[in-house]
Write a protein that binds this DNA or RNA. Structure first.
Length: 570
RNA sequence: AGAGGGAUAGUUCAAUGGUAGAACAGCGGCCUUUGGAGCCGUCAGUCCUGGUUCGAGCCCAGGUCCCUCUGCCA
């Protein structure tokens, strides 16, 4: 089955979000007329992995800013390193941004500008601002100096312009092997900003590029490609993360040297979330090592994974807005995300009864062979959603954890002699506990009160608990996958620096229930369908589902007062 | 140690020289045919030391702590 994308947010995603410091900067630009009142942002992913929750924040920021100011946003792939990039990632990124509910003004690639970037590089050489260096990578590193010591000039730094030009052209022509030469900007080897110590502009990479094929064997570095791409596209505000702050002088230097349109780079703090890894390198390892089933494994922090898990675009956008934008890095509690997911799903997810860990209940005074169909609300939060019909009979399943033979204080659910309500059906009282030879409970005998039909007692008596249930004869069997956090510590800072992060991968992050019982109204649910299993949590139909057997992912649990009480009790 | 940034409730953000607020989390209560949802209440903070000012989270000085940077990655 394919993912049902009909639940993707339409165009016109939620408004730009709450105010942040970038609005102040743009307002100032508009006041001074720097960009003529224009706002044009871009989202520039490198297609070397799947987008994750941190990218979602950047996407919402860039598209949100443009929307707030009536501007535009380009999607531009930063595809300058063919050894790491792949068409699969390009396709996934496009799918994910669309699913989040955003539409770009232009779909572009840095590789669209390779020829222009090359010409500008020749200009730089001709102006004496760049040179071909043939030091090895090790030698360049050695010449670069350290954080506290200045670097030294390359012996090739002052070679004649014509010689650099000739060699650069021959680099392009493919006359040299990988690593033999590079083009470097001629700036200042003693700059305290290491990015300004004659940064490499081009390296030789005899590699096939997903878009330009074998047309090039030299590829521009990020610093050389990014600002000029922004300039070409008329980007006004080039929003990136904090680690590029040190690169801004270089960004500015290039466009000034070239005398071309000058966008404004603005840095903000990357969004991190507890228990979520946002290092592409580590995510790639989880995938390659088979710790997870793929980039879209519902335990992953990728947008694809969150979609498969049942998160909604609205929930993710709400979360990003809740976290906000700042220049002081931090780590947001994943409970904020979960709150947003519950908040959205509570309003839209149809209710269903499903028993994950069944225990059989026999109603001793219920007529053999009788079946009643009860109306139950599809969604109590949304009366217009109507009702569904749920079959009831003599033999039922309830959740094993809803029964305790010797209940502790505050356990409101079923126990011997205790009366509870079965949701939308009857009050029942437990009369007998049947055990097997090993003393394990295998069945409960209960009586029902016919007068409580529909779930209300005409004499006004109350019960403390309402349980979900499924008629044994009508139950649909399904596989249910329960997920826990992928990491055993909330923050990467909580890990021992000497240990590999793999040691902190939660070995119990996936629990598979092969035979859950679900009420028959679930039959035919399409992939991507989101439901609430009452009293249990929100679930969605996984693409692994077949016509014979549905597979569900647990999106998020419901808040659970009882579990909390138990934990408090020790 | 050099350069660049950052420090406000447990967490993420507001407060733009004039009463330090919100959300999430926590705690307590109300309500409930989901121990859900909702509603109400509550706990809790300006990194430190000086200075300017009628008044400082905000401005100034000094300090402390944290983050980023020594890829032919982005």
């Amino acid at each position: 089955m394919a993912i049902d994308e009909t639940n993707a947010a339409g165009a016109g995603a939620a408004a730009g979000g709450k105010r942040n410091f970038i609005h102040d900067i743009i307002d100032e630009h508009n006041r001074t007329g720097r960009f003529g009142g224009r706002v044009h942002t871009r989202f520039p992913p490198e297609p070397n992995g799947y987008l994750h929750v941190g990218h979602a924040a950047s996407i919402c920021l860039n598209f949100g800013i443009a929307e707030t100011y009536g501007g535009k946003t380009n999607l531009r792939f930063d595809d300058t390193n063919p050894t790491k990039e792949d068409q699969e990632y390009i396709d996934a990124i496009i799918r994910d941004i669309h699913w989040l509910g955003f539409e770009w003004a232009n779909l572009l690639y840095a590789s669209d500008y390779f020829e222009q970037l090359y010409q500008w590089a020749e200009t730089l050489i001709q102006n004496g601002k760049a040179y071909v260096d043939q030091l090895s990578a090790d030698e360049i590193r050695e010449h670069r100096g350290t954080l506290t010591e200045p670097g030294r000039n390359s012996p090739h730094r002052d070679r004649p312009t014509a010689e650099s030009l000739d060699r650069f052209r021959r680099m392009r022509a493919g006359e040299f092997k990988n690593g033999e030469m590079v083009l470097r900007a001629k700036i200042d080897m003693s700059s305290p900003n290491i990015n300004l110590r004659d940064p490499v502009l081009y390296r030789i990479l005899h590699a096939h590029h997903p878009r330009t094929g074998d047309a090039w064997c030299i590829y521009p570095m990020y610093d050389w490609a990014h600002g000029q791409s922004d300039s070409i596209e008329g980007i006004t505000h080039s929003i990136c993360t904090l680690e590029f702050e040190d690169h801004r002088p270089l960004y500015d230097w290039f466009v000034e040297q070239l005398g071309i349109y000058h966008p404004q780079q603005i840095e903000f703090a990357r969004v991190n979330v507890t228990t979520m890894i946002t290092s592409k390198r580590k995510l790639l390892r989880l995938v390659k090592d088979g710790v997870v089933r793929g980039w879209d494994d519902p335990r992953m922090p990728t947008i694809s994974a969150m979609r498969r898990r049942g998160y909604t675009p609205k929930a993710i956008r709400d979360f990003v807005e809740m976290v906000g934008v700042s220049r002081s890095g931090g780590i947001a509690d994943i409970q904020m995300l979960e709150y947003c997911v519950r908040q959205d799903l509570n309003k839209i997810a149809p209710r269903t009864m499903a028993v994950l860990h069944p225990i059989k209940v026999v109603l001793t005074n219920y007529p053999e062979g009788q079946v009643e169909w009860f109306d139950s609300p599809v969604n109590p939060e949304d009366p217009t959603a109507g009702t569904r019909q749920v079959p009831f009979s003599k033999e039922l399943y309830i959740e094993a954890e809803d029964f305790m033979e010797t209940p502790p204080p505050k356990f409101y659910r079923l126990s011997p002699g205790k009366e509870v309500r079965l949701r939308s059906a009857y009050f029942v009282t437990c009369s007998e506990v049947i055990k097997d030879a090993d003393g394990r409970i295998v069945e409960l005998r209960c009586t029902y009160d016919p007068a409580t039909r529909g779930g209300d007692a005409p004499d006004g008596r109350k019960v403390k608990a309402t349980l979900h249930w499924v008629s044994a004869a009508h139950a649909v069997t399904a596989e249910v996958r329960l997920y826990d956090y992928l990491l055993t510590v909330p923050k990467s800072g909580d890990m021992d620096e000497d240990k590999d992060f793999m040691e902190y991968v939660n070995p119990n992050s996936l629990e598979i229930i092969d035979h859950a019982y679900i009420e028959p109204s679930i039959t035919g649910a399409p992939v991507g369908k989101q439901v609430q299993f009452e009293r249990v949590g929100y679930f969605t139909v996984d693409p692994d589902s077949t016509a014979e057997k549905l597979v569900f992912n647990r999106t998020v649990t419901l808040k659970d007062e009882w579990t909390k009480l138990q934990k408090q009790g020790g």
